[in-house]
Amino acid sequence: MVSRQNDRLILASGSSARRAVLDGAGVPFTARPSSVDEAALKPTLAHLSPADLALALAEAKALDVSRAEPDAWVLGADQTLELEGGSMDKAEDLAEGRARLAAMAGRTHSLHAGLALAKGGQVIWTHLGRADLTMRPLSDAFLDAYMADEGPQALSSVGVYRLEGPGAQLFERVEGDYFTILGLPLWPLLAELRRIGIIGT
């Protein structure tokens, strides 16, 4: 894909999964993780639903980098996990991760993936994707083996799984966009990138 000479896209994220999605789709970009302190910001957003929280965090990340790179298009992204109305943060350690999987086993949770494009310190476009995932019942033996195999990399996801890896074995049903599950709803984003000229039509 060819970008316009003066149009650059910056991904305001350090997520390897999001970078892989953009790379795989042939989107030209550079990565510059935002300096947003999510732990400090989230208490001020506690009144938001899990879906709205994902969008608010995506906007904050896009704006943070856009202020430093005003001439570029900046893509912010965030994902939240909702279980029975409550939002979860990433597990702190493997024991907490295992307990989370045990709590989600046999139940359905939702992933909300927020995207925000900013330029010149202003948010120009947003999108919110959702996927509903139903875990199968999980035995203690399976959980022990899964956590041992995945190790600390499982903690990179709020759900303690990589659907593109062994985490696929956790589920019996998934409803929604695969790219939304990876944290980057791709097709709406590609449509907007075509509209603004980052990729060709």
Rank of each mutant, 00 (worst) to 15 (best):
S3L: 04
S3F: 05
Q5Y: 08
N6K: 03
N6Y: 14
D7E: 13
D7T: 13
D7Y: 09
R8L: 03
L11D: 02
S13R: 11
G14W: 14
S15H: 02
A17S: 08
A17K: 07
R19C: 11
A20Y: 10
L22F: 12
D23F: 08
D23L: 13
D23T: 14
G24R: 12
G24V: 08
A25R: 11
G26A: 12
V27C: 06
F29D: 00
F29H: 04
A31H: 07
R32W: 06
P33L: 12
A39L: 07
L41W: 15
P43H: 11
L45G: 02
A46E: 13
H47F: 13
L48G: 12
S49C: 04
S49E: 09
A51P: 14
D52A: 11
L53I: 05
A60M: 04
K61P: 03
P70E: 03
P70W: 10
L81D: 05
L83Y: 15
G85L: 03
D89S: 12
D93Q: 05
L94A: 02
G97W: 13
L101V: 05
A105H: 05
G106D: 08
H109A: 00
L115A: 05
A116F: 11
L117S: 00
K119F: 00
K119Y: 11
Q122T: 11
H127T: 00
L128V: 06
G129D: 03
A131K: 06
D132W: 06
T134S: 13
P137L: 10
L138D: 04
D140A: 06
L143P: 14
D144N: 12
A145H: 15
M147F: 10
G151L: 09
G151R: 08
Q153I: 04
A154I: 06
V158C: 00
V158W: 01
V160S: 01
R162N: 14
L163H: 08
E164F: 09
G165Y: 15
Q169C: 12
L170Q: 01
R173V: 02
V174A: 10
E175S: 06
L182G: 02
L184Y: 09
P185E: 08
W187E: 05
W187T: 10
A191H: 09
R194N: 01
R195F: 12
I198G: 11
